[in-house]
Design a binder for these strands. Structure first.
Length: 663
RNA sequence: GCUGCCGUAGCUCAGGGGUAGAGCACGUCCUUGGUAAGGACGGGGUCGUAGGUUCAAUUCCUAUCGGCAGCACCA
């Protein structure tokens, strides 16, 4: 049918990236276009971009458009290479393991995966064999040919070839829609495309990485498929750089560094819960106190609500029904003739999974006037969630955690200014912590939700407006809001480019309604306050995990659990070291002494490996002159200065960023 | 929760049907040395837990707990 329309077309004007226009008497393929520009370009062409959309090189261009020939030099080439590599992987697997069904194989960040259905499990030992076969298919340089099929034909074809999953995908497409099938050699796959002209264009810079289970269509009710992950790049150099980056990420693993630096540990008897060691807890408190000061200065009040609250509150809030499975529930039986609950029933209480219901109870004490609003209520209390076993991951996902949570009770009119103020606070806090906002997304109404559509309309609009007036570019995250309201998600970027969603701002018209919070308005009548749920760091636990990985354990001075270790050259200096310790300690620094009868080399090494930011060496010379020799982590030079000056300077340097006005 | 892999000394790991080994750490002694490991000796493990197979299990099997990777979930 494409040929038919091709013949009927009129003159064609194609605008190149440099603004020049190429005219053709009728439709041309991307390859013909490339050839008309230059022979070299035609040879290098992989695909063509039509008004920003990538298309096959051999597909006729029928309409006027902005066009761009995609070559290997273009970053867009990665997308093509990875997708083609996924196809080659599928072909290789089917050649090697007959009877294996193919399903889907999309690109992901830095690579691709392909999901297979096969009774027998693949093993990592199969990878070299599969990679060899892939190389062979690439060497064959099979042409990738796009064909347009009728949907029913396609269903029939895939059924007949035993590809039930593919058949199901096609079957679920609208009945009158044609589908595209790509053939490479003798192998066919349902695919939207686009693809490069032949498998030889892939090159050799690919590698299979991981093997894992994945549900068919991402639904845990469906059968589990076997997913093979791979990565593919334009050349070996890019591939190696990526593999090195993976190693870097492994080196930064907060679980490993947490153990090495003696920050915290986990053990079987408290799965998903953290045992904070003195150094880790010092870091935790430094971070919590920082946030606390920022909130204090931003007009928040801090509270602490109970951890154990009767189920009635959670039933009213909706958490009991929607998230009950993930709550820790305690059944208290009647005792000594008392009734546990009333009616002689055992009492059901819940360990709070979040703070909002508790905060509403505090809000509801006494009568609130519109003059009292906004009330910004913060808490650093422990929340408990019975996370699925497989979800637990170091500090990143735990069952007991604290959020830098706060709820702003305000009027509808105040949503805007409160939201903007929060965005400013968040931005400033991220800067202080060494991050920047990488991305902002607005997550709107999910399927599982409470409240009327009218209320959701109002809430979503409020967030759109807030983001606009805070001047933050954002994109949408459809259907990912909380059950009580839409949310803004703030992502930060760490030192190796990974994005983490930490901050959040949620508008909630529902919770005040469900838990019956009211204030008296100017008109003397009762009104519902709006609740803004907001967090800057999100989970303190997770945020510390991110900090550890971001800084590889080399924390900025104000967060470092130990600021300085005083190392003696010989034990003759122990007395003076004690004086140094006292002076620095009095200046507010977190200091330790190392008077072991070890050589100074060993002491430097030990404390450097512990990522202690400052090492103060004292020997006879320093004791006589009342000085210290300062060595910074990863520094070469030593800096000799009078003790009093060192204490003053370092104490200043160790101040948290919000207190360091002189710095 | 699902799939796969794993669980040996405080840590990192080797080993393997006949009741265990290295390095680091730890302890004692010697060493008092100016910026990333001074030396000697020594202590330390019912091989995650419970069953089963076997003359014999830390090793094989099953269950369970926990961990890792991914998926699902994430108020």
């Amino acid at each position: 049918m494409e040929h038919a329309s091709r013949a009927a077309s009129s003159p064609l004007r194609l605008t190149l990236p440099d603004g020049s226009v190429k005219e053709f008497s009728g439709p041309v393929t991307g390859l013909e276009l490339a050839a008309s520009i230059g022979k070299g370009l035609a040879a290098a062409a992989l695909a063509v971009k039509l008004d920003g959309e990538m298309r096959d090189l051999m597909r006729p261009i029928e309409h006027d458009a902005r066009v761009e020939i995609v070559t290997r030099k273009s970053p867009d080439a990665l997308e093509l290479i990875r997708h083609d590599t996924a196809h080659v992987l599928a072909e290789a697997v089917q050649e090697l393991f007959p009877g294996t069904q193919v399903t889907i194989g999309p690109n992901i960040e830095n690579g691709f995966y392909y999901d297979f259905a096969r009774d027998q499990p693949f093993s990592l030992d199969d990878f070299p064999k599969i990679e060899d076969k892939m190389r062979a298919i690439i060497a064959r340089d099979e042409k990738l040919v796009r064909e347009v099929w009728n949907r029913d034909e396609a269903v029939e074809y895939f059924k007949n070839t035993g590809e039930n999953y593919k058949a199901e995908i096609v079957h679920d497409l609208p009945a009158n829609e044609d589908v595209t099938v790509y053939t490479q050699g003798t192998w066919k796959d349902l695919c939207r495309g686009p693809h490069m002209p032949s498998t030889g264009k892939i090159g050799t810079a690919f590698k299979l990485l991981k093997l894992a289970g994945a549900y068919w269509r991402g639904d845990s009710k469906n059968p589990m498929l076997q997913r093979i992950y791979g990565t593919a790049w334009r050349d070996e150099k890019e591939l190696n750089a990526y593999l090195t980056m993976i190693e870097e990420a492994e080196k930064r693993d907060h679980r490993k560094i947490g153990k090495e630096l003696d920050l915290f540990h986990f053990q079987d008897e408290a799965a998903g819960s953290v045992f904070w060691h003195p150094k880790g807890w010092t870091l935790y408190r430094a971070l919590e106190n920082y946030v606390r000061r920022r909130l204090d200065k931003s007009g928040y009040v801090e509270v602490l609500a109970p951890q154990l609250i009767d189920s009635s509150i959670f039933k009213a809030s909706g958490h009991w029904d929607l998230y009950g499975d993930n709550m820790f529930k305690i059944t208290v039986p009647p005792r000594n003739g008392e009734s546990g609950g009333g009616d002689g029933e055992p009492k059901q209480i819940g360990l709070k999974p979040m703070n909002c219901p508790g905060h509403v109870q505090i809000f509801k004490q006494g009568i609130k006037s519109y003059r009292d609003l906004p009330i910004r209520m913060a808490e650093f209390g422990m929340c408990h969630r019975n996370e699925a076993h497989g979800a637990l991951h170091g500090l990143m996902r735990v069952r007991q955690f604290v959020t830098d949570d706060a709820h702003i009770f305000c009027t509808e009119d105040q949503i805007q200014s409160e939201s903007v103020a929060f965005c400013e606070l968040l931005r400033s806090a991220y800067t202080d912590l060494g991050f920047e906002i990488a991305r902002v997304r607005l997550a709107d109404r999910p399927e599982k939700r409470v409240g009327s559509d009218a209320v959701w309309d109002k809430s979503e609009q409020a967030l759109h407006r807030a983001l606009k007036s805070a001047n933050l570019p954002y994109d949408m995250n459809p259907g990912d809001g909380a059950f009580y309201g839409p949310k803004i998600e703030f992502y930060l970027r760490d030192a190796i480019g990974r994005e983490w969603q930490c901050g959040t701002l949620q508008v909630d018209f529902n919770m005040p309604e469900r838990l019956d919070a009211t204030y008296i308005g100017e008109d003397g009548q009762k009104h519902r306050p709006v609740m803004l749920h907001r967090a800057i760091l999100g989970s303190m636990h997770r945020f510390i995990g991110i900090l550890v990985e971001h800084y590889v354990g080399k924390f900025p001075l104000w967060l470092a659990p130990i600021h300085a270790v005083i190392c003696t050259i010989t034990n003759d200096a122990d007395g003076y070291a004690q004086e140094v310790y006292q002076t620095l300690s009095d200046a507010g620094l977190r200091v330790q002494m190392d008077t072991r009868p070890e050589k100074i080399n060993a002491k430097i090494r030990d404390h450097s490996l512990q990522k202690i930011p400052l090492i103060l060496v004292v020997g006879k010379k320093e004791a006589d002159a009342k000085t210290v020799a300062l060595r910074r982590l990863d520094g070469e030079a030593q800096d000799i200065m009078p003790l009093a000056e060192a204490a003053r300077k370092l104490a200043q340097e160790a101040l948290p960023p919000d207190m360091n006005h002189a710095g």
